[in-house]
Amino acid sequence: MARLHPSMVAMCIAGVVLGSLSFLQCSAQPVAFDQNYLVTGGTDNNVKKLDGGKTVQLVLNQDSASGFASKSKYLFGHISMSIKLVPDDSAGTVTAFYMSSESPNHDELDFEFLGNSSGEPYILQTNVFASGIGNREQRIYLWFDPTADFHSYSVIWNPQQIIFKVDDVPIRVFKNNQASGLPYPSTQPMRIFSSLWNGDSWATRGGLQKLNWTHAPFIATYQGFSVDACQWSDSGSLESCATSNSGWWNNAAFQTLDSDSQSKLKWVQQNYMIYDYCTDTKRFTTTPTDCTLRS
């Protein structure tokens, strides 16, 4: 588990007071890429390390896609990445930042950035797989140009809920409804992955708009490889990672959204959400149970 050094206090997002104890919601200090990640796809020309590994570029060209993964697995915690997406005509490209258990009946938490023609907005798709069951897509437009500068994309994952955030604004919450018989990612450790690949069979306008290779190479740039999470070592990690003292993300303050976070989430849903599987009656003739519980 990544621990916080006193010098990191300045990096804290917000303070939360619980009873007589003070807990700080902080991200672990960004480290060089090689300390926690390894290249999983692409040639040397497709994964470029800059600034001593503090910045990494994934490159998609006709030779290869590209990607990387964390060396360690985690069960609950705070995972964050700062990304500057592929600029200009990115139609057909998919920039993925996700966690996965890599196992049969796997668990997975997804950010997928779906490229578009120059001047058209990016679409951010999120999804949750639990015990191999997915089909829980939500899509939003972002309220800024994600190609102009770095923005933070993060997940707070604990035994009660999963919060997807963009620049500390909640865009999605997935609750633990195991008491109602629904699976929840709570027992399988996950690695962190990112990749840049050709998804033009589906990513842009349902696959109608293809990737234009004359605009290659397509480049996504990464910084802030922050992990503040419970690192999996063996089967004993299952119990220890779920205890309240294993990390700030397991404290009561993060088991629900406070009023400010609820307002931000509602703002995103009302102004930027363009697809929610819960309202897709053509795809689901019966409303999924987790949607009923959410409402």
Rank of each mutant, 00 (worst) to 15 (best):
D260V: 14
I274V: 15
T281I: 05
T281D: 00
S259H: 06
T279W: 05
D276V: 03
I274A: 13
T281E: 06
D258V: 10
L257A: 01
A253V: 11
C278I: 07
A253N: 14
D276C: 06
D260H: 12
N250K: 05
Q269D: 14
Q270R: 10
K266A: 15
Q262C: 01
C278T: 05
I274Y: 10
D260Y: 14
A252D: 09
Y277H: 03
A253H: 12
A253R: 10
I274W: 13
T279K: 09
L265F: 11
M273V: 14
W248T: 12
W248F: 09
L257Y: 01
A253I: 08
A253Q: 14
Q269W: 08
D276A: 02
W249V: 04
T281M: 00
W248Q: 07
W248D: 07
N271V: 01
S263G: 00
Y272G: 06
L265H: 11
L265E: 09
W267C: 07
N250P: 02
N251S: 11
I274E: 09
D280N: 08
Y277T: 01
T281H: 01
Y275N: 11
Q255S: 12
D276W: 02
Q270M: 09
D258I: 06
Q255I: 08
M273F: 09
D260M: 12
N251F: 07
T281V: 04
Q270V: 03
Q269P: 04
M273G: 11
S263D: 07
S261P: 02
S259A: 14
T256C: 00
W267I: 03
I274F: 08
Q255D: 07
Q255Y: 06
Q270E: 15
K266H: 12
K266Y: 02
M273L: 15
T256P: 00
Q270I: 01
K266M: 08
S263E: 07
F254L: 05
Y275A: 11
S263R: 14
F254A: 07
K264A: 13
N271C: 00
S261Y: 13
S263V: 03
D280S: 04
N251L: 13
W248V: 15
A253P: 03
K266T: 14
Q270N: 15
N251C: 00
Y272N: 08
W249Y: 12
Y277M: 00
Q262G: 10
K266W: 06
A252P: 04
T256I: 05
D258K: 10
S263Y: 01
Q270S: 15
S259D: 12
D276Q: 00
D260P: 05
Y277I: 04
Y275S: 11
L265N: 10
S263M: 04
D276F: 03
Q270W: 00
A253W: 10
C278K: 06
Q270K: 10
N250S: 08
Q269Y: 09
N251H: 15
A252W: 05
W249K: 03
Y277C: 01
Y272T: 02
S259W: 06
T281P: 02
S261F: 09
Y275D: 10
T256N: 08
S259N: 13
